[in-house]
Simulated scan of single mutants.
Amino acid sequence: MDNAARSGPDPQVVKQAIAWALRLRNNRANVRLHAQCVRWREAHDDHELAWQRVQALQQELSSQMAAIPGARVALENVSQGVGRRQALKMLSGVILVGSAAWLSRDLTGWQRWTSDLATATGERRSVQLPDGARLQLNTDSAVDLDFNAQQRLITLVRGEILVTCGAPSSAPLLVQTRHGLFEGIDGRFAVRQDSDCTRLSVVSGNVAIHSPHSADGLSTQVHAGESYLVHHTHATLAPPLDMDMGAWVDGLIVTRNMRLAAFLSEVGRYRPGYLGCSAEASDLRLSGVFRLEDTDKLLAIVAQTLPVEVRYRTRWWVSLERSA
């Protein structure tokens, strides 16, 4: 199975499919628009795959619409003829968020089935590898393993891992991501794969970045306490972080004067749906140690620490807004 089949359609293609679904929902009689959507679907296999998944998941979501407060409000406003355009916009937003949540669950579930090791949203997992090394997976992560006499390869399909090197071996311990290839020489290191780059953080020991190479064509040596941002073509020393990159192993998020918007982006990785804050609250700063096993309780503690209120529009849509 190739990588494309393994990981499903690209997230950007998924967003395009959702956008097409919303446009057609709001313009059912537009024959020209329907024809344009058909051409988009036929342009690539991933387009059709994303489209079919969106359609299937929206059908499932439709059966749940009565349970979504935002959808009820929108439908009531439309039926009363009050603010039809605004109500339709709200309804489309609910459908978009709901579809994205269901679709994300579906794609992640597919990767959990096809990857050697994986975790669900909010789950963490620790595994001892055949060579004695310890592999820990953070929330919503997946890896493939290829261990043989020549190499010990961990391919990070998605998410974040922490590797503790085992006993020395003649076969190198390698971690592969979309952006680079890393060799754990000794000690402990974390690898987090985001959409635009991979972050390598060395807790102890040393790690070599083999790909991409440095400007002189040699591997980059990363030492304890250092972090690098690795792109397809280059690797750069990362600025100091406002959070402890390895605290998730203990079920914690540890912050140091962190922006609330950035903090919620991190916490959002451990719960389904949308978690964010208003523009007025985004620059508030937060320091402390927070437990991740119950993110609703965590948010309540944040509201006691900062001048914000937690607003639940639905169980999948939570926003923190600055107190009046």
Rank of each mutant, 00 (worst) to 15 (best):
S7A: 09
A215K: 10
K89P: 00
A67T: 14
G187K: 02
D242E: 10
V73A: 10
T121K: 08
L49I: 14
G184K: 00
D146F: 11
M65C: 06
G180Q: 03
P9E: 13
L284M: 11
N148W: 00
A21W: 12
C165H: 13
D45L: 12
S201W: 00
A35V: 09
G159M: 08
A149T: 07
K297W: 01
C197E: 06
I253A: 11
V127S: 10
V207G: 05
W110F: 00
S282R: 06
A50Q: 11
T236I: 07
L61P: 03
A300D: 14
W20Q: 10
C277A: 01
I209M: 01
H44W: 04
R311S: 10
D2Y: 07
R125W: 10
Q80W: 08
M245A: 14
Q58D: 13
S319C: 12
M243C: 11
A71T: 08
G122S: 09
H231S: 09
F147A: 05
S63M: 05
E226P: 02
G251Q: 01
V203H: 12
L284N: 05
T155K: 12
V127R: 12
V302A: 04
A43D: 11
L284D: 04
T255Y: 02
N77H: 09
I185V: 15
A66M: 05
A300T: 09
F290L: 15
V143N: 07
Q16T: 15
V73H: 06
N206V: 13
L218T: 08
R6I: 09
A66E: 13
R259E: 13
V289T: 15
Q193F: 01
L298V: 06
V310P: 02
H44K: 13
D45W: 12
Q59A: 13
Q176D: 10
R25H: 10
R259I: 07
E76F: 00
R271P: 02
E280W: 00
P168R: 07
H234Y: 08
A238L: 04
Q151H: 05
T119H: 08
L24G: 04
V267N: 08
A262M: 12
